[in-house]
Computed example of a mutant assay.
Amino acid sequence: MKPPSRHLKLGLVNDNAVSCEAIRRLVATRDGYQLLWTAYDGAEAVEYCRTNPPDVVLMDVVMPRMDGVEATREIVATTECAVLLVTWSIPRNTSKVFEAMGAGALDVVTTPSMGNLEEIDTFFRKIEQIKTLRAPMAMPPRVQAAAPATEARSAQKLILLGASAGGPAALAEILSGLDATLPTGIVIAQHMDVRFGDDFISWLGDQTAWPVRKAQAGDAVTNGLVLVAGAEHHLVFRPGNRLHFTDQPAFAYIPSVNVLFSSAAEHWKGSLAAALLTGMGSDGAEGLKQLRQAGHLTIAQDEASCALFGMPKAAAAIGAAREILPLNRIVDRLAGFSLSN
């Protein structure tokens, strides 16, 4: 007889008694989950995570004493617990949601209402996705890398940025630190739920002088413009330096950094610098290696400045990064790249 699988241990953080009771009841209806404790503010949650750590913390955003942003920052920095933000209104709390994601929260979901099957389904699917993300991510098939510097290249320059957990804050710091008049275009792949991708792009645009918009099929990289991959499809380069969409391979998180980086290694004709930023798992490591093999500048964020060192660590382990730098030095390095001949 097959032994039962270990329960996924959850911690619940919410100052609203009605929300707590609703979530408790939902968790009790599903096999394979165990609610370890309930905390009613962030400070209490930090202490519980130290003494009785769950696998996933279900974290409210707005709370007294210590809010979800600061609690997430403390929990990610001091424990191995993953954080899923659970809030009743994402549009009303957009700034705090992306601040908490910058502090290391892995994803966000609306507080499920009892009887709303779609919200309940989404709630448990998010928890399962986080469980999947904590395991190493499968790599995409290798592509034939583009020929390095000996091949004729256009003068246009490209900066590629890939991130997951902790990415919003890291991306905001990079874009706010780079002069928006630099002669380069920027393309970003950030793991983000499809329902919040547009909010994220809007929020990111508010953090920087760079124009920021969602990438569209057929887009060309344009100097002075930031194109962000949507969460509906993987973003890829095709011949002619044009961006397109694909739904393959089917990863838990879309857009895949690996898929974007690998396609750029094959098709981008021009100078390119790529930085793999904070995130859990290994997405982007293999793609960054292919870019390095194609003769491009490849950078991984260092552990000290990462909310989660998983993705950059995976890149460092396979020799994908020419340079491993703290976030502020990544800004300087990308600025120097943009101005170099």
Rank of each mutant, 00 (worst) to 15 (best):
M311H: 08
L334C: 10
H234S: 11
I120K: 02
D41N: 13
T222P: 02
L158E: 01
P112E: 02
R92M: 08
G310D: 08
P183L: 02
N14W: 01
I120D: 00
D247K: 15
F196T: 13
K269A: 09
L297G: 01
D55W: 00
R30F: 04
G336E: 12
L308I: 13
A315H: 07
R329E: 15
A43F: 04
L225I: 11
G177D: 05
G185I: 06
Q301P: 11
W210I: 05
P91I: 04
L160E: 02
A155R: 10
A45P: 08
M280R: 09
M139T: 13
A103G: 05
V228T: 07
R213S: 14
Q207K: 08
T78L: 13
F261S: 12
H191P: 11
A105I: 03
M114N: 09
W37Y: 09
T132V: 13
K289V: 00
D283K: 11
S282K: 11
F200P: 06
I324Y: 03
K289L: 15
D60M: 00
A103V: 01
I90V: 15
P141V: 09
C49D: 08
E128A: 14
L12E: 03
A155V: 05
F124P: 11
A152C: 03
L235N: 09
A300W: 03
D41Y: 03
C81D: 05
L288S: 02
T72H: 02
D55R: 06
D199E: 06
L84C: 06
V228G: 10
E44Y: 00
E286W: 07
H296P: 00
A100K: 08
M63I: 00
V97A: 12
E47P: 01
A285M: 10
L291A: 01
V259C: 13
D283L: 08
L260T: 03
D193R: 07
L225Q: 15
L288R: 07
N16A: 11
K2R: 11
V236G: 12
N241F: 12
C20W: 00
G102D: 04
T246S: 13
L276D: 08
A146T: 04
Q34R: 13
A22W: 03
D67E: 01
P136Y: 10
A169K: 14
T150I: 14
Y33L: 14
S262W: 01
V62D: 09
F309R: 04
L12Y: 04
T184K: 10
L225G: 03
M192V: 14
I324P: 03
A43W: 01
D302L: 08
D107G: 07
M280D: 01
E151A: 11
G68N: 09
A314Y: 11
I174P: 09
L260R: 09
P91E: 00
A250P: 10
V331E: 08
V221R: 10
A217H: 08
F123M: 13
H267D: 07
V228Y: 12
A250M: 09
N116V: 06
D198T: 13
A294S: 14
A189W: 06
L297K: 02
D15C: 02
A231S: 15
L178G: 03
R213G: 08
H296V: 00
I120W: 01
A316H: 02
S19I: 00
G270E: 01
T51R: 10
S176D: 15
T150P: 00
R142A: 15
L325H: 04
E151V: 07
A220W: 00
L276E: 07
